[in-house]
Design a binder for these strands. Structure first.
Lengths: 160, 160
DNA sequence: TATTGTTATACTCTATAACTATA
DNA sequence: TATAGTTATAGAGTATAACAATA
């Protein structure tokens, strides 16, 4: 069945990314987000929508610009997301000062918020079940450090 | 300047993702890949192209299907990538058995390979410069574990 | 005028289905 | 037929520019 040199079918295929932090980060992030999407599926939410509900649930009355900063997303990209959750009846807009709009969850949104929190907690437990007890917290600290160092390639100061 | 309740402008904005491994992974991965893209820019390569060169450089004569497995990418998505690097004169195809095609670097490709390796090493050092000495290796081990646990949500066996 | 939000758009990544080519 | 590769296309996610609305 193996007629040509196909190293990946054997142990002989060299993976230069196996020992690179950058690529392991990416692979793991993709795997984790994909698993999270599957776990959120029964709620009819994707990770973006669930994140938005988590954020508004934790900060009732916040504005879109505050959310865009928190999610590191462009304001323009929040519009379809908010429209969909609004059409779903999960959140409502109340006009604030200036052009600002205060976002908060409806009763349906609060229900989704509780369910999403449960999914997140279960997911978090699931992906860390193979780690020693303190490793999760250590890992988060290290990730924040790496994120900061990556964001500010030339300096030593904080940026996250 | 702050007329409405905008928690993100103060310390009062709650970030429910700050202590979640899943979202810190994603944030860090995005920041790291963005930094890598900037560092590869002078070579005229993006991270995908550079990864492909690294992989073929480490495995001369490998096939596209081997690469797609190693990069966890769909074979169809490699086509434009390979076409571009081929048009750039960085790699060449030699037909193998069946419909398989063996890929290898040209002289220009080997030159890019060396330069990309240098960029990767510098980048790796840069993003880990804020970590204690052994943390990088520990982190990679933990990431592989988390990746495995995320990929196989229901079992305990290996999958990465 | 400065800030906030919206629209339109484009570019990259990723995913699938249908197709071709070859042992 | 099974494997390898290609094409076309559709869907996310993300980026920018231009615009509207309001203090």
């Amino acid at each position: 069945m193996k007629n040509i040199a196909d190293p990946s079918e054997t142990e002989g295929f060299a993976d230069p990314f196996q020992d690179m932090l950058s690529f392991q980060l990416r692979r793991t992030s993709v795997a984790v987000m994909s698993a999270l999407a599957s776990e959120l599926d029964p709620l009819g939410l994707n990770p973006s929508e669930a994140s938005l509900i988590m954020l508004i649930g934790a900060n009732p009355g916040c504005t879109q610009s505050a959310i865009s900063r928190a999610l590191r997303a462009k304001p323009a990209n929040l519009v379809p997301l908010i429209n969909q959750l609004s059409a779903l009846g999960a959140l409502e807009r109340v006009s604030g000062r200036g052009r600002a709009i205060a976002l908060s969850l409806t009763e349906k949104g609060r229900d989704l918020h509780q369910k999403a929190k449960a999914v997140f907690e279960r997911h978090e437990a699931r992906i860390t079940r193979g780690l020693p007890a303190d490793s999760r917290a250590e890992m988060i600290v290290m990730l924040r450090q790496v994120c900061m160092d990556a964001c500010c390639p030339g300096h030593d100061e904080a940026g996250d």
